[in-house]
Design a binder for these strands. Structure first.
Length: 226
DNA sequence: GACCAGGCACATC
DNA sequence: GATGTGCATGGT
């Protein structure tokens, strides 16, 4: 069993299924993917509730709404002015591309869709992959700050390894399974929230950071996983 | 009051 | 192509 699979196994047995993504619809997941950029999910929930109350939890409606209106509703999620522009750009993309009929995107190759998403203002690598995996059910491994931090701490890769190399490392180490990629990312975030803010908290961490992190030196040492 | 959170675009070197 | 900076709220 490779280390990537072993980490997943240990996390799943410690935490159980995480039931991601917390969204009631595909559109809500896409909106949440923008709103959660560099922000707590708690703040995102407030913004989503505001959008729902304002009858703007809809890509079609966001694409036609004013930036000021959007910004005011999503204020709790932070960066509300830039995120208003990003939400509008993503909404316009899906409205124009498929009239928000996501099933019509199914014939598109993954790479084509990913390329198109990355061309949309406000959609970077992580946001594109979050949308692909959680909203559009495509087999992409989402790499976020926690994935990078945890992977680095456990000697999977150097701190400065680029996004796509990390993504390919996980994808090539695992069976090509959408539910698995979904659950793994959610579990890494769960682990990150509880044990990696921003330094390891060793006690009771299921991956046992004590084995890999040297607090006095502030450095890490590798230990073979068996 | 400091620090952090499920990033991204843009400017500058 | 690497590095720095602005964007901003809310919880601990």
């Amino acid at each position: 069993m490779n280390i990537v699979t072993k980490i997943y196994s240990r996390l799943y047995h410690s935490f159980g299924p995480q039931h991601w993504w917390p969204g009631e619809s595909v559109q809500e997941i896409i909106i949440g993917a923008i709103l959660t950029q560099n922000t707590n999910w708690q703040n995102v929930e407030k913004a989503i509730l505001n959008l729902k109350k304002g009858r703007l939890l809809s890509l079609e409606r966001i694409s036609r709404a004013s930036l000021d209106m959007i910004a005011e509703l999503i204020r709790p999620s932070g960066y509300y002015n830039v995120k208003a522009k990003r939400l509008k750009a993503v909404s316009e993309y899906f409205a124009q591309r498929c009239r928000c009929d996501f099933t019509s995107l199914e014939p598109l190759p993954l790479e084509t869709l990913r390329h198109e998403l990355l061309a949309v203002y406000g959609v970077g690598l992580e946001t594109a992959d979050s949308i692909l995996l959680y909203a559009l059910n495509r087999p992409v491994f989402v790499v976020d700050a926690y994935t990078r931090r945890i992977g680095h701490w456990h000697g999977l890769f150097k701190d400065n390894l680029d996004y796509d190399s990390i993504r390919v490392l996980f994808e090539s180490s695992l069976p090509d399974s959408i539910p698995l990629f979904n659950e793994y990312h959610a579990l890494l975030v769960r682990l990150g929230k509880e044990f990696c803010r921003p330094k390891p908290r060793c006690d009771s961490c299921p991956l046992n950071f004590r084995e890999y992190f040297h607090p006095q030196r502030g450095t890490f040492f590798k230990k073979n996983h068996k």
